[in-house]
Design a protein around this nucleic acid. Structure first.
Length: 283
DNA sequence: CTGATGGGGTTATCTTCTAT
DNA sequence: ATAGAAGATAACCCCATCAG
């Protein structure tokens, strides 16, 4: 799971590829990951670390999830492209479970899509020994990491909707959002509604203890959950991979809906009735 | 060049607190 | 009871990077 050590590792890795000026903000001669909450210095904060942290968290998730993928006879792949369902080269899937390790995939070989919205959560400063030292959780600095940002939530929801409306070929692919922070109270109802309506199967925080203050650990309908262990993730992922679900949506009159139901009801089993109904919706 | 993505800094607006 | 401060929210903008 996500820890302070992962964030320290990130800075130690990135400092070799970049400079401290590109990674941290200089406040009166001292470098910080974020400006502390009560600091009033007018500082110019670099944006250069963003793409570093983006690629790092995507690889981090691949490592965490690849074992689970293999247990299900699948591969965890970063940057999956599938034009048929709207995953272009410019807007690939951050991480997906596929039946082969290739980044170019056919829709039927993509079994699960992850959208990753993770970043540096805690604050750090750079000390005289060139070490990155923890100096407070996300409540102590001015940044607003991961799923706590409203527009990160909107981006995640938007990308998921893009997949859902681009073609019906993605209807069997569950979508999961991965973060490393809690969510705000204003998104509690929304994530449960997104789960209920099938657009997004779950928002997950991979950071079990982001603060000692109280925070939203999960929502009533489990549209958002904070996971404490890889075991929990494994159970959830295996269940969702075996559920054989369909995404469907529409806007139609009771009459038309009733007509479809009565046609579907002539099939011989629940399995076939469900299948027939979904087929009719996708015309 | 354009346009998209990444995380995240900034700010207008609204709500809540605090000191009269 | 009320004015102003402080805090929270939501959405805007930023900029490095990459693909085409």
């Amino acid at each position: 799971m996500w820890t302070i050590q992962d964030e320290v590792n990130f800075f130690n890795y990135a400092i070799n590829l970049s400079s401290i000026e590109n990674l941290m903000v200089n406040i009166r001669g001292k470098y910080f990951a974020f400006q502390p909450k009560n600091d009033d210095a007018k500082v110019n904060t670099p944006q250069a670390r963003n793409s570093f942290i983006g690629s790092t968290t995507e690889k981090w998730c691949k490592e965490l999830f690849s074992q689970i993928a293999r247990q299900n006879n699948l591969y965890a792949v970063n940057g999956v492209v599938c034009e048929e369902i709207g995953l272009t080269r410019q807007s690939a899937a951050d991480l997906a479970f596929c039946s082969s390790p290739s980044t170019i995939q056919r829709p039927e070989n993509i079994k699960l899509i992850f959208e990753i919205k993770m970043g540096i959560v805690n604050n750090y400063f750079y000390d005289d020994n060139a070490d990155f030292v923890f100096c407070g959780d996300y409540t102590t600095h001015k940044g607003n990491p991961s799923l706590l940002r409203s527009d990160s939530m909107l981006k995640a929801i938007g990308k998921s909707i893009n997949l859902r409306v681009d073609s019906s070929k993605a209807k069997k692919i569950p979508i999961i959002i991965l973060g490393n922070s809690p969510i705000t109270s204003s998104y509690v109802k929304k994530v449960d509604c997104l789960k209920q309506s099938g657009v997004i199967q779950k928002f997950i925080s991979l950071y079990p203890n982001p603060t000692s203050n109280s925070f939203i650990r999960e929502t009533p309908e489990k549209g958002f959950e904070t996971y404490d262990s890889p075991n929990q993730i494994e159970t959830f992922i295996s269940n969702i991979l075996n559920a054989n679900m369909n995404y469907f949506s529409s806007m139609m009159s009771n009459e038309k809906l009733g007509r479809l139901i009565s046609i579907a009801s002539q099939e011989a089993s629940d399995e076939l009735r469900g299948q027939r109904f979904i087929e009719m919706l996708n015309v």
